[in-house]
């Protein structure tokens, strides 16, 4: 919880919550400006630092296809086929 001093010096203001204003969230108050904004972004795009990549890659899928990971998995399978659990420390069994 913030101290009084932190609240007084914070640039984030204290905002009174009025639940009735939630009704405005689904109402576009400035439709022309929103359309104009969409036009600008469609034409100019976004700064590179802000724009997200076109395709988002799942890290899990990527690792599944990583040659290093595939090799290590094959080595692990081979080890267990050869040694079973006998090769593992007692604390892991």
């Amino acid at each position: 919880m913030k101290t009084i001093e932190e609240l007084n010096t914070s640039k984030v203001p204290i905002v009174i919550i009025d639940k009735s204003l939630d009704e405005l969230n689904d109402v576009v108050l400035f439709p022309e400006k929103v359309e104009k904004a969409k036009e600008v972004i469609a034409k100019v795009g976004l700064p590179k630092k802000i724009a997200l990549p076109q395709t988002s890659v799942s890290p899990i899928t990527d690792h599944g296809n990583d040659p290093f990971v595939v090799k290590k998995v094959e080595e692990a399978k081979s080890f267990f086929q050869k040694n079973g659990l006998n090769g593992l420390p007692k604390s892991v069994k």
Binding site: I17, K19, S20, L21, E23, N25, L29
Partner: peptide, 26 residues
């Protein structure tokens, strides 16, 4: 400032020679 819970829509009241003017930010 007043706002809804999602902090998307705001209201405040401007005070000056022309009286009180309600303003909205979205």
């Amino acid at each position: 400032l007043k706002s809804g819970r999602e902090l998307l829509s705001y209201e405040f009241i401007s005070q000056g020679p022309k009286g009180l003017i309600e303003k909205r930010i979205q």
